[in-house]
Write a protein that binds this DNA or RNA. Structure first.
Lengths: 230, 230
DNA sequence: GATTGGCGTAAAGACGGCGTAAAGATTTGC
DNA sequence: GCAAATCTTTACGCCGTCTTTACGCCAATC
């Protein structure tokens, strides 16, 4: 599990910091991929499948936190957030969205590298299997972000994916409403439980053989939801 | 899991911070184990096998970093370091010794809890073991929040489940009515003992082989109830 | 042997959570 | 800039769960 040639994705718009990171990470032996926006970051994360990503929160085309949610919907890769904001609320939001660490700018490069090493440690490189679910006639590939039913592809919206992966990570176990809301919509919507009901129905309509009698996406009244698979 | 009673080991010598952490982690639903020294910390980590440990660096009988090395030698559990020192060298040393995160005192409790959630996320809890009860033909998995009788699943309502776990935590021992009422319904209903009779019956109907002659959920007249298991 | 308190049992009512639908607001893609 | 897709908001009916209420039983007490 040596990380000699681990690939790291850097999502940062300020050229100066980008150069700084590229040089520092490069001399440490990492392969560096760079992106300057949320959109590019999402694409590069999917295409390069890096072993770790460093994400700035203040990006030109949106909040980095949105990128975190997107990536978390299909990958468990370590995510380190870089931010100029030291406020606690921002930290909590980023961490609950799926970030593994939160570093405040300005940061010491030594510390950042140590946090990278720490995050990379114990990461099992993509071994290939395991990330496909089978629910009766429907199959879901969490890596490729695709789903199909009896061969014909099904389209899932971003939120539907996030909710599904959040449930799929704990197959067979109850995931509480608070957990789901925090991870999918962020801590601010922790009490908007009606979102869950709406998207649970949408997922059931798309995935369940008989949406009126759910077999795979089961609700635990007063607690949360639970996903079964064959 | 997410969210079913993860155990957290707190290694900290200052009583004030300890109390603070115990209360904060407790209300979040975590089970808390405490230690005040490196030596006790190492022992408790080995014996309780917590899902995560929060370690202070300045301990009376040595550096917390030593404890980190010891634990890392045999366990991949998440380790969060607490420290009053903000120096970069210390951070790097702790992280490279095996820590997953480094939080500087004074810290916001919200941030710490978010970092705990983040570290706990994706941790596969050693299932099996002590978190399943066997009552004759019925099996109860406290982690997955499921119960089954001769293979067929049984549905438990939230209150039924809370009552059951409350009893299961003290298997073989009497739990007083006051305790049960306080933990399940809250302190306001401490004298509504008839609730207990109603839900005791419901549990018996669902779990006991012969509900008319309870073998596992036994009432201790005037005191409370007691749960046996095989 | 009557009485009292604690427990078991049953059933009806109240409440809240859940599913469902549809319209409005926002974002995305062309 | 427009159209489509997606997300959010709002509303309502149903059903499960919880609470309330009532009554029968047993054991202990007097």
């Amino acid at each position: 599990m040596t990380d000699t040639r681990a690939t790291i994705l850097v999502v940062e718009d300020e050229p100066e910091i980008r150069r700084f990171l590229r040089s520092a990470l490069g001399t440490e032996g990492y392969k560096v991929v760079e992106a300057g926006s949320v959109k590019r970051g999402a694409i590069d994360a999917a295409s390069h499948k890096p072993d770790l990503a460093i994400v700035d929160l203040g990006l030109p085309d949106g909040e980095g936190i949105e990128l975190i949610r997107q990536v978390r919907a299909w990958s468990p890769m370590p995510l380190i957030v870089l931010s100029a904001r030291a406020g606690e609320a921002g930290k909590i939001a980023a961490l609950d969205a799926g970030a593994n660490d939160y570093v405040i700018k300005p940061f010491g490069i030594g510390e950042l590298l140590a946090r990278v090493r720490s995050a990379l440690r114990g990461v099992v490189r993509p071994s290939g299997g395991g990330h496909t679910l089978k629910l009766g006639g429907t199959a879901i590939d969490l890596d490729a972000r695709t789903a199909s039913r009896d061969g014909t592809p099904i389209h899932l919206t971003p939120i539907e994916y996030r909710l599904l992966t959040c449930l799929a990570r704990n197959t067979g176990m109850v995931v509480t409403q608070g957990q789901l809301l925090r991870e999918v919509w962020g801590p601010a919507h922790e009490s908007d439980t009606h979102y869950l009901r709406i998207y649970a129905k949408q997922l059931r309509d798309k995935l369940e053989p008989d949406p009126l009698q759910p077999r795979y996406l089961v609700t635990e009244t007063g607690i949360g939801y639970r996903l079964f698979c064959d």
